[in-house]
């Protein structure tokens, strides 16, 4: 941490008794273990997987070993990378739509109780409808969307709608809750100072809703990926949207199970990356003031 020449630090060090030193040692060990243990467990899991496959001589079209999956991932990466990129694109476009529409609706609902009463039921209906059941219909309904500069292919529109339906509800419900959670005394204060609706929203409700929104975003991030993959499963092999789900279907038809596992690995990797990115974003936005992100020295 600090240099040993700093007198304040030296003095503080001298004050520590045996028990405190033992606690400090415990903290240091804990700090190392936090990284070493998960990695060791991961290595152990992979080894166990490898061992089960080898000892039981499981054929690779039933369960490929980790080495084979890794090897396939490297060999087929050229094919998989293209599909991966498509899945990533759909996921992020759907997440973007979920955030804009979710936050937009939450603000609208918050501003007008009447609008909320009228439209919230539809949001719930969308949320509880099994997407897998209606997805095939959605792909029949959609058409190419011409935006002037470029055209969005109907297949992509269908994928986006499916992924969006799955992902937007947590954003909507969490942000709605957050907008309504502003401190009552602060609301009174804004009223006393004659704040406009817009000022209340901008300076009080949106900051109050931020932690709630980020909680919703963390759920929606994973759901938009799941939505994108599930929708593509339904869309099947027709069309251009040959993302990772298409590769998984294709591999299972051809009994290329190692390649299916490689594609699954990429999906999992994407999901974990999205989760970590949102966790980081949450930390950046909240660590200065919100209880959830504050570390206390004990």
């Amino acid at each position: 941490m600090s240099t040993m020449t700093d007198p304040a630090v030296t003095a503080a060090t001298d004050l520590r008794d045996d028990e405190e030193l033992r606690r400090a040692r415990g903290r240091r060990i804990n700090g190392i273990a936090r990284w070493v243990l998960p990695i060791a467990l991961l290595a152990l899991t992979l080894f166990w997987w490898h061992w089960v496959v080898t000892v039981n001589q499981i054929p690779h079209y039933v369960l490929p070993g980790p080495m084979l999956v890794a090897q396939t991932l490297v060999e087929d990466f050229a094919t998989l990378a293209g599909s991966w990129w498509i899945t990533i694109q759909v996921t992020f476009m759907a997440l973007f739509l979920a955030v804009t529409v979710g936050v937009g609706l939450a603000i609208l609902f918050n501003q007008s109780r009447l609008v909320e009463m009228s439209f919230f039921p539809y949001a719930v209906v969308l949320q509880v409808t099994p997407i897998i059941a209606i997805a095939p219909l959605i792909f029949i309904y959609v058409v190419d969307i011409n935006l002037g500069l470029f055209t969005i292919d109907a297949q992509l529109v269908g994928l986006l709608i499916c992924a969006w339906i799955v992902a937007f509800f947590p954003i909507l419900s969490n942000t709605t809750l957050g907008l309504n959670s502003a401190d009552h005394n602060l609301r009174d204060l804004f009223s006393i100072y004659g704040a406009t609706r817009w000022q209340k929203l901008r300076y009080l409700q949106l900051p109050s809703a931020l932690p709630y929104f980020l909680g919703g975003l963390r759920i929606a991030g994973g759901l938009s990926l799941i939505g994108a993959v599930v929708a593509e499963f339904v869309a099947g092999t027709g069309g251009v949207g040959s993302g990772l789900a298409f590769r998984i279907l294709e591999s299972s038809y051809r009994l290329q199970i190692p390649r299916m596992f490689a594609a699954l690995f990429l999906i999992v990797l994407t999901g974990v990356a999205i989760y970590l990115a949102i966790t980081w974003l949450t930390h950046v936005l909240l660590h200065k003031w919100h209880e959830s992100a504050i570390k206390r020295e004990t």
Partner: peptide
Amino acid sequence: GTDDLGVVFQEPTLMPWATVEDNVFLPLRL
């Protein structure tokens, strides 16, 4: 007008996301 009134509640009622300065700035910002 609204300038002529100041209020202090039992709780400090500060905006946790804003610095001390921005909290004091609030009535003027509004």
